[in-house]
């Protein structure tokens, strides 16, 4: 009995964590390569071509070069926080991945193997809380560098991430009211029961979520914390080598987490389109986890696409969009969603 418990609650989670870590780290490394290639194609260039076939070894060369760079720490920097700050970003992004449901789960050798590391009943809340922790990496990194541009970048980052989180949370609450649960697996199951992905029921919320998602990860057109034209490199100006690489990888991991969150909340997780209809039943040849990954990559591509096509917003425009447009619309959306849910419940008796 106890060996069975050990395998069920000890060995299987460790294997799950290893698989998720390895897959996500690979996606992060090759996400950088994909971004460089996609940006190149948008500019009608070729992108990396010389390092390996089609430049496929580029991420390996970049990573090892950064690892072998001089370990540079400014003499005026607060050394403990300067070392810690990049790690916080990685930690926040990777721990949020524990709640991501990649599929329905299966049974192997008599043991239950869910395709989610931890299906907790406050999953979405925990994911939002962990992704908000990344603001500490930005603020502490900028502050501990003890230099002007990182400090300005960090303050901008803090203001931006905090204000966009408000709109993000309000739109998510509207979705959670329809689903009736905060568990990530439960939300996908609710979409199966209703027979529709939630972006059909929450079109306004979906658009606001996608905008806030881009702002939350500090990607273009909302990359004001790092704005090269004004702030040199923003909050990571003083970071070099592997510490800077941690910021970069953390940003990509945050993009992956946000894509997973969007897929779970609005695009039906591992479900096929119209999960209750017989017309789309043939699409079940594609297994659930593959659906999830395909939808996730769609969002990753979206991040890179808008980076190649939109210019950066001005800081006051960013704040105007956040506080005067997105937050009022998201509150109105929450209000109307509540009214409609009440009406539907009254009609159902």
């Amino acid at each position: 009995m106890s060996t069975e418990l050990l395998i069920q609650y000890g060995v299987i989670p460790i294997i799950q964590i290893l698989v998720v870590m390895i897959v996500v780290l690979t996606v992060v490394a090759y996400g950088v390569y994909a971004e460089r290639k996609i940006l190149a194609f948008i500019h009608s260039r070729l992108g990396p071509m010389r390092v390996g076939p089609w430049g496929l070894f580029q991420p390996i060369a970049d990573g090892l070069k950064l690892l072998m760079k001089e370990d540079l720490r400014p003499s005026v920097a607060d050394s403990l926080i300067f070392v810690m700050a990049p790690a916080i970003l990685m930690l926040a992004a990777f721990s949020a991945l524990t709640m991501v449901p990649f599929g329905e789960g299966t049974t192997m050798f008599g043991y239950e193997v869910p395709y989610v590391i931890a299906d907790v009943n406050i999953g979405i809340l925990a994911m939002l809380a962990l992704s908000s922790l990344s603001v500490y990496a930005v603020v502490l990194g900028g502050w501990s560098s003890n230099s002007k541009y990182p400090l300005i970048g960090a303050l901008r980052g803090a203001a931006q991430m905090v204000s966009y989180e408000v709109a993000l949370a309000f739109t998510v609450v509207a979705t959670l009211m329809i689903a009736g649960t905060m568990s990530t697996v439960g939300i996908v199951e609710a979409q199966r029961e209703l027979g529709a992905w939630f972006f059909i029921l929450q079109p306004v919320g979906f658009v606001i979520f996608v905008i806030c998602m881009v702002a939350e990860t500090n990607r273009l057109p909302f990359d004001l914390p790092e704005a090269e034209t004004e702030l040199v490199s923003g909050y990571f100006t003083e970071f070099s080598g592997m510490r800077w690489a941690f910021y970069m990888l953390g940003e990509y991991a945050a993009m992956i987490v946000m894509s997973c969150l969007a897929v779970t909340l609005y695009l039906g997780g591992w479900l096929r389109p119209f999960p209750n209809s017989e017309l789309t039943a043939f699409l079940d040849v594609i297994p659930g986890p593959l659906w999830f990954v395909l939808k996730g990559f769609m969002f990753m591509y979206f991040f890179m696409w808008i980076r190649g096509t939109y210019p950066r917003y001005r800081y006051d425009q960013l704040m105007t969009i956040g506080w005067k447009v997105l937050i009022p619309i998201s509150i109105a959306n929450l209000f109307f969603t509540g009214i409609i849910i009440l009406l539907v419940q009254a009609a159902a008796g």
Binding site: R36, A40, R45, L46, G47, P48, M49, R50, V51, G55, Q58, A61, D62, E228, V232, S233, T237, E238
Partner: peptide, 11 residues
């Protein structure tokens, strides 16, 4: 970018 050198770093 063909040489992997398009990453012009500002700092």
């Amino acid at each position: 970018a063909r040489f992997g050198m398009e990453v012009f770093r500002a700092t």
